[in-house]
Amino acid sequence: MSGGALGEMLFRFVVGGAVVALFSLGGDVFKPHSFGGLFGAAPSVAIATMALTLHKEGSRFVATEALFMCGGALALGAYAVTVSWLLRHRRAAVPFTAMMAVPVWFVVALAFWLVVRAT
């Protein structure tokens, strides 16, 4: 790996870490917890990633990323609804439930991918 690529990764790491930590603080300080939960689906990773990608790959690349992010957002909604439902109706622990619901995200994201590809 070249020095330039390593430097870019380090820059991504620092910017992404700072943005995510900042948004997470929002989730800590707002009450009730349902409002703080809004920050759990904040575009923190997206802002950090796309801002850096825009500089490197150009606006066409980022526009396509944003279009396909719509599928990821729908999948994230399905994931959050599933976690909320499972925690309310099943007795499993929070870490177990949060991990076990991740396949829901993959199923919805894959469905979006297939639908967009077919149209």
Partner: peptide
């Protein structure tokens, strides 16, 4: 955690708005 997950499920449409 239930309340926070419910809040996140209502922020997901907002993430869609961000992407669009």
């Amino acid at each position: 955690a239930v309340a926070a997950a419910a809040g996140a499920s209502f922020a997901a449409p907002a993430l869609l708005v961000f992407a669009v």
